[in-house]
Design a binder for these strands. Structure first.
Length: 109
DNA sequence: TAATTGACTTCGC
DNA sequence: GGCGAAGCCAATT
């Protein structure tokens, strides 16, 4: 591993870990928070390579609040999010814009 | 080192 | 609303 600079990967993981329960973030948001708003795909790859390492990757969804990824276990992802208070409509998060976590100074709590 | 893949995003049909 | 193509970045082979 550590093919590219860990900085990016490490920042992405750190951001995802900072996502509080009941909140969600898009790959693009996480990538942007890591310093590369165009690295959404890379974020997905990072998740795949670091999922389970204490990173709540289930709180990371695609753009528009579209639930997916998670190795194809979107059902599980959906269940986890719902368990945290995030309502899901079909394959999308209800009030996604409101549930969307922003990497601001605080966690909106 | 180069080429391919992928848990993405956005526009177009 | 669903499917397809182009673009961007990192990981994997």
């Amino acid at each position: 591993m550590k093919t590219a600079d860990d900085s990016f990967r490490r920042r992405v993981l750190a951001l995802v870990r900072r996502i509080p329960p009941g909140r969600v973030a898009t790959y693009g948001d996480v990538a942007a928070g890591a310093g590369k708003p165009r690295a959404a795909r890379a974020v997905g790859n990072i998740m795949k390579g670091c999922s389970g390492a204490g990173v709540p990757c289930h709180r990371v969804v695609a753009a528009g609040g579209l639930v997916g990824g998670y190795g194809g276990n979107e059902t599980l992802k959906r269940a986890l999010l719902r368990a945290e208070g995030v309502l899901i409509r079909a394959r999308r998060i209800h009030d996604f814009e409101e549930r969307r976590w922003r990497n601001r100074g605080r966690s909106t709590t």
